[in-house]
């Protein structure tokens, strides 16, 4: 009987955590007139994302270039 009750409580725990995980992090980001710091940081991160994509592309190009000079690492 106790096990059954524990499972219900813990499932509620999981539900709450999953909910918070979505509500805190997700959903669309709008540039409002006044946004609290959460959304501001997201706008910064969108800028970081653009930089990330270009680093990834760089990385791919480097991988393809097997003849690249090993001395470039020293």
């Amino acid at each position: 009987m106790t096990d059954y009750i524990n499972t219900i409580e813990q499932s509620k725990d999981i539900t709450v955590l999953e909910l918070l995980d979505r509500a805190l992090n997700k959903g669309i980001v709008l540039a409002g007139d006044v946004v609290i710091s959460v959304a501001d940081i997201d706008l910064v991160y969108i800028g970081v994302k653009l930089m990330l994509s270009s680093i990834e592309t760089m990385e791919k190009l480097k991988c393809n270039n097997i003849e690249a000079d090993a001395k470039s690492f020293t």
């Binding site: 669309i28 709008l30 409002g32 007139d33 609290i36």
Partner: peptide
Amino acid sequence: IPVRFGTLFKTIGSIKYMLKKN
């Protein structure tokens, strides 16, 4: 469409403008 928690706008007009723009 859920909107990111914590998004605030100053006026109804600016919300309409945002909806129109997007």
